[in-house]
Design a binder for these strands. Structure first.
Lengths: 233, 233
DNA sequence: CGAAAACTTGACGTTGGTCAACGTATGTGG
DNA sequence: CCACATACGTTGACCAACGTCAAGTTTTCG
């Protein structure tokens, strides 16, 4: 007995959050028998751009950044993935090398599920395939929004948007600070700006009383003000 | 007999280009019986952002731009779709209102395929679903690249990249001009810049001898120079 | 405790957005 | 077929936003 009960896919609550919920108890058992649970330390690389993935990583705990290196040598963070998200899905489906790197933002627990066992299920279970399809359709819509924001909005607006996004999606600690350890440089890499521009914007937000900072921690004080900024006034 | 032979899906060569190729002759016949072929004039709207789509549009001929309105009132062109591409796929799959508008860039011929007949096939035919999945995985990868370009590259670099993209994907006329009627404003909306910035960049490219313009037509003269610019030198 | 990493601020130059004026196609109705 | 209207293209002047370099401070971590 290598895994205790909550280590089995069929009992893992995470699957409620992603396409694995479309699998039957029996199919989950098959997957669980071959999956490997890994602990990943903050800062560790889960996989790197250009790597050939032979499986996907189901995030059970923690947060990771998915980024891509630009020709000019700068990292662009394309997505922040958390509990319930499946990393590497896209490249396994397209049977291509991955186009993104994944790095842990804090200590993580992920389950590695080998490609073979997935493709077996893909070719048999329509509900599963369709669940993935719907999720990718959502991802695609989200990507469209990001493209528009990058193309049309100012750095200030993009940072405001990112802060609101982080607060909504990663909740806050007891004191109301965003529970997310993104460095200032990481935030800059999310919005596609220079680290200094990002810092300056944050200090200006602070001056306006829109946010409060404590070290690297950030708390949103005036959400409406940020929203007005994003909308253009 | 409302349609002549080449009007039938099962005989349409376009299907070789998209996920319809995963359907059997019988399934195609079913679809063909219900599809409607439409002629669309240059500038006409195929569908508009926020509309509820009850089917998809298979492009048989011509080119269309897919764009999204930003909060600041500017249009962002997210994709240029041509022969063989299926419009509206994403929102039909996610069962959401469409997040993009589609406008014809020249006269087009598209086949409208009702949602019901597609979902019937989605729930039955795994190969078909998987074909769509693979295609959406490709779209997603492409979107990631666009995000990185928008975030990290200059307007000059993005315009150079767009010109090269257009030349590669839409071929050229007898004289070597890009066979694509994008206005200067359209190009600006692709790269997310002001119309004037776009024009100035194009005239600077012309001065450098990298491109030749004749009215609104554009021909690439020095592809390597554009490539060097994109790479950062 | 000390080194390395992250953060902060200032100065300065460039890029690119905005407004405004004007030239040039495109097309429509008289 | 012309006159006019309407879109599209082009250029200049000006200024705000942003990137870069450089120097100094604080935090983190072994």
């Amino acid at each position: 007995m290598e895994d205790h009960q909550e280590g089995r896919c069929e009992n893992c609550i995470i699957r409620q959050l992603n396409s694995l919920k479309a699998l039957s108890k029996e199919e989950l058992k098959l997957i669980s028998d071959t999956k490997v649970t890994k602990s990943i330390k903050k800062g560790d690389v889960i996989f790197e751009e250009g790597e050939k993935l032979n499986g996907v990583f189901c995030v059970r705990n923690g947060v990771s950044k998915l980024s891509k290196m630009s020709d000019n040598g700068k990292d662009q963070i394309v997505k922040i993935a958390t509990k319930g998200e499946v990393l590497g899905q896209r490249s396994v489906i397209a049977e291509e090398k991955t186009n993104l790197s994944a790095v842990a933002l804090n200590d993580m627990e992920v389950c590695y599920i080998s490609k073979n066992h997935l493709t077996d299920n893909i070719s048999n279970n329509v509900a599963f395939t369709k669940a993935i399809l719907v999720q990718m359709a959502e991802d695609l819509k989200f990507a469209d929004d990001v493209i528009v924001n990058m193309a049309q909005k100012s750095v200030k607006q993009r940072i405001a948007e990112t802060l609101r996004y982080l607060e909504k999606n990663f909740k806050t600690d007891e004191e109301g600070y965003i529970a997310m350890t993104l460095s200032r440089e990481d935030i800059a890499n999310v919005v596609g700006a220079a680290k200094e521009a990002c810092i300056r914007t944050l200090t200006s937000f602070k001056k306006e009383g829109w946010i409060i900072t404590d070290g690297k921690r950030i708390k949103i004080e005036d959400d409406k003000a940020l929203y007005r900024l994003i909308e253009g006034f």
